[in-house]
Protein backbone atom coordinates (compact mmCIF):
# COMPACT_ATOMS: atom_id res chain seq x y z
CA UNK A 1 0.00 0.00 0.00
CA UNK A 2 1.54 3.29 -0.98
CA UNK A 3 1.26 5.74 1.84
CA UNK A 4 1.46 9.44 1.05
CA UNK A 5 4.12 10.10 3.64
CA UNK A 6 6.61 7.47 2.63
CA UNK A 7 9.08 7.74 -0.20
CA UNK A 8 11.66 10.45 -0.81
CA UNK A 9 9.66 13.28 0.76
CA UNK A 10 8.98 11.35 3.95
CA UNK A 11 10.30 14.00 6.28
CA UNK A 12 8.45 16.80 4.58
CA UNK A 13 5.08 15.09 4.95
CA UNK A 14 5.73 13.93 8.48
CA UNK A 15 5.06 17.55 9.43
CA UNK A 16 1.34 18.01 10.16
CA UNK A 17 1.02 21.29 8.27
CA UNK A 18 2.30 19.61 5.11
CA UNK A 19 0.36 16.43 5.61
CA UNK A 20 -2.97 18.14 6.28
CA UNK A 21 -3.44 19.65 2.80
CA UNK A 22 -1.95 16.58 1.15
CA UNK A 23 -4.50 14.36 2.91
CA UNK A 24 -7.26 16.72 1.84
CA UNK A 25 -6.15 16.53 -1.79
CA UNK A 26 -5.63 12.75 -1.87
CA UNK A 27 -8.75 11.59 -0.02
CA UNK A 28 -11.28 12.45 -2.77
CA UNK A 29 -9.20 10.53 -5.31
CA UNK A 30 -9.12 7.45 -3.13
CA UNK A 31 -12.84 7.82 -2.48
CA UNK A 32 -13.52 8.08 -6.21
CA UNK A 33 -11.35 5.04 -6.88
CA UNK A 34 -13.18 3.16 -4.12
CA UNK A 35 -16.58 4.03 -5.61
CA UNK A 36 -15.58 2.98 -9.14
CA UNK A 37 -13.90 -0.22 -7.95
CA UNK A 38 -16.91 -1.08 -5.81
CA UNK A 39 -19.22 -0.70 -8.80
CA UNK A 40 -16.89 -2.84 -10.92
CA UNK A 41 -16.59 -5.39 -8.11
CA UNK A 42 -20.35 -5.57 -7.63
CA UNK A 43 -20.84 -6.04 -11.34
CA UNK A 44 -18.29 -8.88 -11.37
CA UNK A 45 -19.80 -10.38 -8.21
CA UNK A 46 -23.39 -10.41 -9.32
CA UNK A 47 -23.40 -10.52 -13.11
CA UNK A 48 -20.18 -12.20 -14.21
CA UNK A 49 -19.27 -14.71 -11.50
CA UNK A 50 -21.21 -17.94 -12.02
CA UNK A 51 -23.47 -19.63 -9.50
CA UNK A 52 -21.43 -21.83 -7.19
CA UNK A 53 -22.02 -25.50 -7.84
CA UNK A 54 -22.32 -26.55 -4.19
CA UNK A 55 -23.46 -23.44 -2.34
CA UNK A 56 -25.78 -21.83 -4.87
CA UNK A 57 -26.18 -18.07 -4.85
CA UNK A 58 -25.49 -17.47 -1.17
CA UNK A 59 -21.76 -17.73 -1.76
CA UNK A 60 -21.95 -14.21 -3.24
CA UNK A 61 -21.60 -12.97 0.34
CA UNK A 62 -17.89 -13.81 0.19
CA UNK A 63 -17.28 -10.88 -2.16
CA UNK A 64 -17.58 -8.62 0.85
CA UNK A 65 -16.88 -11.11 3.61
CA UNK A 66 -13.37 -12.04 2.54
CA UNK A 67 -12.17 -8.51 1.68
CA UNK A 68 -13.62 -7.23 4.98
CA UNK A 69 -11.85 -9.97 6.95
CA UNK A 70 -8.56 -9.27 5.15
CA UNK A 71 -8.95 -5.55 5.69
CA UNK A 72 -9.73 -5.93 9.41
CA UNK A 73 -6.49 -7.84 9.95
CA UNK A 74 -4.42 -5.67 7.65
CA UNK A 75 -5.64 -2.44 9.27
CA UNK A 76 -4.56 -3.76 12.69
CA UNK A 77 -1.08 -4.43 11.32
CA UNK A 78 -0.87 -0.93 9.84
CA UNK A 79 -2.10 0.47 13.16
CA UNK A 80 0.63 -1.39 15.02
CA UNK A 81 3.15 -0.19 12.43
CA UNK A 82 2.22 3.47 12.96
CA UNK A 83 2.23 2.94 16.71
CA UNK A 84 5.76 1.56 16.56
CA UNK A 85 6.88 4.42 14.32
CA UNK A 86 5.34 6.88 16.75
CA UNK A 87 7.04 5.35 19.78
CA UNK A 88 10.43 5.06 18.09
CA UNK A 89 10.56 8.30 16.09
CA UNK A 90 8.32 10.34 18.39
CA UNK A 91 6.17 11.63 15.54
CA UNK A 92 2.74 12.84 16.62
CA UNK A 93 1.25 12.22 13.21
CA UNK A 94 1.91 8.48 13.44
CA UNK A 95 -0.18 8.20 16.60
CA UNK A 96 -2.99 10.13 14.96
CA UNK A 97 -2.86 7.78 11.97
CA UNK A 98 -3.18 4.71 14.15
CA UNK A 99 -6.10 6.26 16.05
CA UNK A 100 -7.79 7.24 12.80
CA UNK A 101 -7.42 3.68 11.50
CA UNK A 102 -9.02 1.95 14.48
CA UNK A 103 -12.72 2.73 13.88
CA UNK A 104 -12.47 1.62 10.25
CA UNK A 105 -10.73 -1.59 11.26
CA UNK A 106 -13.44 -2.26 13.84
CA UNK A 107 -16.08 -1.57 11.19
CA UNK A 108 -14.54 -4.15 8.88
CA UNK A 109 -14.47 -6.61 11.79
CA UNK A 110 -18.20 -6.14 12.34
CA UNK A 111 -18.85 -6.53 8.62
CA UNK A 112 -16.78 -9.72 8.48
CA UNK A 113 -18.61 -11.18 11.49
CA UNK A 114 -22.06 -10.18 10.29
CA UNK A 115 -21.56 -11.45 6.74
CA UNK A 116 -19.94 -14.60 8.12
CA UNK A 117 -23.02 -15.24 10.24
CA UNK A 118 -25.42 -14.62 7.35
CA UNK A 119 -23.36 -16.89 5.13
CA UNK A 120 -23.16 -19.56 7.82
CA UNK A 121 -26.91 -19.83 8.41
CA UNK A 122 -27.86 -21.27 5.00
CA UNK A 123 -24.50 -23.04 4.55
CA UNK A 124 -23.93 -24.65 7.95
CA UNK A 125 -27.45 -24.25 9.31
CA UNK A 126 -26.38 -21.93 12.12
CA UNK A 127 -25.45 -18.27 12.44
CA UNK A 128 -22.45 -18.87 14.60
CA UNK A 129 -19.91 -21.67 14.75
CA UNK A 130 -17.01 -21.61 17.19
CA UNK A 131 -14.72 -21.87 14.23
CA UNK A 132 -11.12 -20.73 14.58
CA UNK A 133 -11.49 -17.95 12.05
CA UNK A 134 -14.78 -16.60 13.38
CA UNK A 135 -13.58 -16.74 16.96
CA UNK A 136 -10.31 -14.96 16.29
CA UNK A 137 -12.21 -12.38 14.26
CA UNK A 138 -14.39 -11.70 17.31
CA UNK A 139 -11.30 -11.40 19.51
CA UNK A 140 -9.77 -9.00 17.01
CA UNK A 141 -12.89 -6.85 17.33
CA UNK A 142 -12.37 -6.79 21.11
CA UNK A 143 -8.75 -5.70 20.58
CA UNK A 144 -9.98 -2.82 18.40
CA UNK A 145 -12.63 -1.85 20.95
CA UNK A 146 -10.05 -1.94 23.75
CA UNK A 147 -7.72 0.33 21.77
CA UNK A 148 -10.52 2.80 20.97
CA UNK A 149 -11.84 2.77 24.55
CA UNK A 150 -8.37 3.31 26.01
CA UNK A 151 -7.39 6.19 23.73
CA UNK A 152 -10.75 7.86 24.36
CA UNK A 153 -10.66 7.37 28.13
CA UNK A 154 -7.35 9.22 28.55
CA UNK A 155 -7.71 12.98 28.45
CA UNK A 156 -4.07 13.98 28.13
CA UNK A 157 -3.36 13.58 24.38
CA UNK A 158 0.30 12.72 24.89
CA UNK A 159 -0.53 9.91 27.29
CA UNK A 160 -3.44 8.72 25.12
CA UNK A 161 -1.14 8.49 22.09
CA UNK A 162 1.51 6.46 23.85
CA UNK A 163 -0.82 4.24 25.85
CA UNK A 164 -2.76 3.43 22.67
CA UNK A 165 0.47 2.66 20.83
CA UNK A 166 1.60 0.27 23.58
CA UNK A 167 -1.68 -1.63 23.65
CA UNK A 168 -1.72 -1.79 19.83
CA UNK A 169 1.76 -3.34 19.86
CA UNK A 170 0.90 -5.75 22.69
CA UNK A 171 -2.17 -6.74 20.70
CA UNK A 172 -0.18 -7.21 17.51
CA UNK A 173 2.26 -9.52 19.29
CA UNK A 174 -0.69 -11.48 20.64
CA UNK A 175 -2.73 -11.75 17.44
CA UNK A 176 -0.72 -14.69 16.06
CA UNK A 177 -0.71 -16.36 19.48
CA UNK A 178 -4.47 -15.93 19.74
CA UNK A 179 -5.01 -17.20 16.22
CA UNK A 180 -2.94 -20.34 16.66
CA UNK A 181 -4.31 -21.11 20.11
CA UNK A 182 -7.86 -20.76 18.87
CA UNK A 183 -7.04 -22.95 15.91
CA UNK A 184 -5.54 -25.59 18.18
CA UNK A 185 -8.56 -25.42 20.48
CA UNK A 186 -10.85 -25.62 17.49
CA UNK A 187 -9.31 -28.78 16.07
CA UNK A 188 -9.79 -30.47 19.43
CA UNK A 189 -13.38 -29.39 19.98
CA UNK A 190 -14.88 -29.11 16.53
CA UNK A 191 -17.26 -31.90 15.66
CA UNK A 192 -16.74 -33.60 12.33
CA UNK A 193 -20.10 -32.34 11.07
CA UNK A 194 -18.75 -29.01 9.85
CA UNK A 195 -15.75 -29.07 7.59
CA UNK A 196 -14.45 -25.58 7.05
CA UNK A 197 -11.03 -26.36 5.71
CA UNK A 198 -12.34 -27.53 2.38
CA UNK A 199 -12.31 -24.35 0.36
CA UNK A 200 -14.72 -24.32 -2.53
CA UNK A 201 -12.83 -24.38 -5.79
CA UNK A 202 -13.15 -20.94 -7.21
CA UNK A 203 -13.78 -19.84 -10.76
CA UNK A 204 -11.41 -17.17 -12.03
CA UNK A 205 -14.23 -14.65 -12.25
CA UNK A 206 -15.08 -15.27 -8.59
CA UNK A 207 -11.49 -14.61 -7.58
CA UNK A 208 -11.41 -11.51 -9.76
CA UNK A 209 -14.56 -10.15 -8.10
CA UNK A 210 -13.10 -10.74 -4.68
CA UNK A 211 -9.79 -9.07 -5.53
CA UNK A 212 -11.47 -6.02 -7.05
CA UNK A 213 -13.62 -5.67 -3.94
CA UNK A 214 -10.50 -6.01 -1.78
CA UNK A 215 -8.75 -3.20 -3.67
CA UNK A 216 -11.92 -1.12 -3.31
CA UNK A 217 -11.81 -1.72 0.46
CA UNK A 218 -8.19 -0.51 0.52
CA UNK A 219 -9.05 2.66 -1.39
CA UNK A 220 -12.04 3.27 0.87
CA UNK A 221 -9.92 2.81 3.98
CA UNK A 222 -7.30 5.25 2.73
CA UNK A 223 -9.94 7.85 1.90
CA UNK A 224 -11.89 7.62 5.14
CA UNK A 225 -8.75 7.51 7.30
CA UNK A 226 -7.29 10.57 5.61
CA UNK A 227 -10.59 12.36 6.09
CA UNK A 228 -10.76 11.33 9.72
CA UNK A 229 -7.19 12.30 10.55
CA UNK A 230 -7.61 15.86 9.23
CA UNK A 231 -9.82 17.24 12.02
CA UNK A 232 -7.68 15.33 14.51
CA UNK A 233 -4.65 17.24 13.22
CA UNK A 234 -6.50 20.56 13.50
CA UNK A 235 -7.44 19.73 17.07
CA UNK A 236 -3.89 18.88 18.12
CA UNK A 237 -2.24 21.76 16.27
CA UNK A 238 -4.84 24.33 17.25
CA UNK A 239 -2.25 26.62 18.86
CA UNK A 240 -0.28 27.03 15.64
CA UNK A 241 -0.43 29.77 13.05
CA UNK A 242 -1.23 27.53 10.14
CA UNK A 243 -4.30 26.06 11.83
CA UNK A 244 -5.45 29.62 12.54
CA UNK A 245 -5.14 30.44 8.85
CA UNK A 246 -6.84 27.19 7.89
CA UNK A 247 -9.74 27.91 10.25
CA UNK A 248 -10.14 31.40 8.81
CA UNK A 249 -10.39 29.88 5.35
CA UNK A 250 -13.02 27.44 6.64
CA UNK A 251 -14.97 30.30 8.22
CA UNK A 252 -14.92 32.23 4.96
CA UNK A 253 -16.05 29.18 3.03
CA UNK A 254 -18.91 28.59 5.47
CA UNK A 255 -19.84 32.26 5.41
CA UNK A 256 -19.86 32.24 1.62
CA UNK A 257 -22.21 29.31 1.57
CA UNK A 258 -24.67 30.63 4.12
Amino acid sequence: MSRPDRGPSILRFAAPQNFYPLAGRLAPWFAGAAALLTLAGLWLSFFVAPTDATQGEVYRVIFIHVPAAWMSMFVYLVMAFWSAVGLVMNTRLSFLMSQALAPTGAMFCVVALWTGALWGKPTWGTYWVWDARLTSQALLLFLYLGFIALTRAIEDPRRADRAGAIIALVGAVNVPVIYFSVKWWNTLHQGASVSLTKAPSMATTMLAGMLVMAVAAWAYTLAVVLWRVRPMILERERHTEWVGAELMREALRQGGRA
Binding site: L139, F142, L145, G146, L150, A163, V170, N174, I178
Partner: peptide
Protein backbone atom coordinates in the same frame (compact mmCIF):
# COMPACT_ATOMS: atom_id res chain seq x y z
CA UNK B 1 -0.20 0.16 34.07
CA UNK B 2 -1.97 1.59 31.02
CA UNK B 3 -5.26 2.27 32.83
CA UNK B 4 -3.61 3.71 35.92
CA UNK B 5 -5.74 6.42 37.51
CA UNK B 6 -8.39 6.46 34.78
CA UNK B 7 -12.08 6.86 35.51
CA UNK B 8 -13.84 3.56 34.90
CA UNK B 9 -10.42 1.95 34.74
CA UNK B 10 -11.68 -1.40 36.00
CA UNK B 11 -14.02 -2.09 33.09
CA UNK B 12 -11.49 -0.73 30.62
CA UNK B 13 -8.84 -3.01 32.09
CA UNK B 14 -11.14 -6.01 31.60
CA UNK B 15 -11.79 -5.04 27.98
CA UNK B 16 -8.06 -4.62 27.34
CA UNK B 17 -6.74 -7.81 28.89
CA UNK B 18 -9.52 -10.42 28.52
CA UNK B 19 -8.88 -10.99 24.79
CA UNK B 20 -5.19 -11.46 25.64
CA UNK B 21 -6.10 -14.04 28.29
CA UNK B 22 -7.83 -16.33 25.81
CA UNK B 23 -4.76 -18.36 24.76
Amino acid sequence: ALTLGLRGGGMLLALLVLPLFVP
